[in-house]
Computed example of a mutant assay.
Amino acid sequence: MDCVSPILDVATRLWDCTTKRAVYIGDLQEILESLSKAMEELKNIAEDVKTKVELAEKNRQMRRTREVDGWLQSVRVLEKQVDEILQKGNQEIQRKCLGSCCPKNCRSSYKIGKIASKKLGAIADLSKSCINDVANRLLQDPVDERPMEKTVGLDLMYAEVCRCILDEQLGIIGLYGMGGVGKTTLMTKVNNEFFKTSNDFEVVIWIVVSSSANVGKVQEVIRNKLDIPDDRWRNRAEDEKAVEIFNTLKSKRFVILLDDVWERLDLQKLGVPSPNSQNKSKVILTTRSRDVCHDMDAQKSIKVECLTQDEAINLFKKKVGESTLCSHPDIPKLAEIAAKECKGLPLALITIGRAMAGKSTLQEWE
């Protein structure tokens, strides 16, 4: 019996090395070569991504995102793991000799081969995610620039809004004022100038809310900017869509720009995480009513004032045009009178100024 036990033990171990395990053992050399080649290809992809990100950042075409940094970090971790596997695998191959089928070598080769095969799958997944996610982010700008003419009289207001955005204690900021005073223009300036040059925010989403606020429509705008796939969106209920938006935004530093808000819009129903000093995200809204700022829990409400008299006259004359103003010596004075009647409202000044452009007779102006 003393002789049988070792033989049975050897037989049992040898049996463990057969069938599917034999693939990992017999093809270990081939598996290691495939792993090395795949890792080298992934490193080349990562280097290409890194170069493109640095170039895009330099040209201010994009900002580095957590997703891109996370992907590059995953490649570095995987590279380290693969190097260890290759080292152990090559040592195992070097130790093989006539008795290489001994139970100890079989088990070790099997283990290394199995781990190597799993890492091949991990490399494939990372390569696929680069194509589907990271590469797309290289092409997608976090903020969409909006059309805007040169502004007049907004510099001080713009500077104040920028200071509020930089204040981490202010999550929700409200811009309020009468219709036509320039709230949307001010927020457009913030969108185009501040967020285009700031490297701190990963996504900026502009949403026109208007009087007929609809949660579903607002969610759709957010979804389009976040590129949430159809299979996670189509045929989903409103609260399920809110969960998808929340899970996508919770790991990002985001800005939501809500234009023309007439009544309270529930951020929780939309799926927008509450902006605070921890996530350093922002919600900025424009509205005609200061009460709406309070209803939206704005920590800072900024009144957008009408233009001063000098600013109003300058804007009006700019829209009328120099050739019209010079067509009669009395027109500049009449233009000033007309500008004062607009009470500093940019929309009125722009609309009437454009209407009077080309009107070169005194009769038309009177």
Rank of each mutant, 00 (worst) to 15 (best):
E41I: 14
E168I: 13
R264Q: 14
W262H: 12
C106I: 06
Y176E: 07
T351E: 08
P6A: 04
V221T: 14
L35V: 01
E305V: 03
Q219V: 06
V221P: 01
K150G: 09
E145N: 11
A335H: 03
R76T: 12
S277W: 07
G26N: 12
T12R: 12
D230Y: 02
R107I: 06
E240P: 01
V49N: 00
D167L: 00
L55H: 03
L315S: 04
H294T: 11
N276T: 10
L154I: 15
P229A: 05
R13W: 06
S34P: 03
I25V: 14
Q140G: 04
R354D: 02
P273T: 13
R66L: 15
V23M: 11
D16W: 02
F195E: 03
A237G: 11
S5K: 09
Q219I: 05
G153W: 00
N44T: 04
Q309A: 05
S251V: 14
K318G: 08
L265Y: 06
L226N: 01
I284H: 02
K252L: 07
S36E: 15
L307Y: 04
E311W: 07
K43G: 14
Q278F: 11
L72N: 07
R21G: 06
S281K: 07
C102S: 06
I284F: 03
I352T: 09
Q94N: 12
L42D: 04
V53E: 10
D295R: 07
S301F: 05
V68M: 13
Q309F: 03
Y176W: 12
L78A: 04
C342M: 10
E311T: 08
V82D: 10
V283P: 06
K58S: 08
R76E: 15
K50R: 03
R290C: 00
F254Y: 15
L258W: 08
A124K: 02
N214D: 12
D200Y: 10
L35T: 04
N247I: 11
L349I: 14
L139G: 07
G171I: 01
D69K: 10
Y158V: 04
A56T: 06
E145M: 15
P6Y: 11
M157R: 11
S36N: 14
Q140M: 15
D291Y: 07
A335Y: 02
L285Q: 05
V68T: 10
R21H: 13
E47T: 09
P329E: 03
A357K: 11
S277I: 13
D297F: 12
I205W: 00
K252Q: 08
L138R: 00
D259H: 03
S5C: 03
K333Y: 07
A339W: 00
P346Y: 05
C164K: 08
P346H: 06
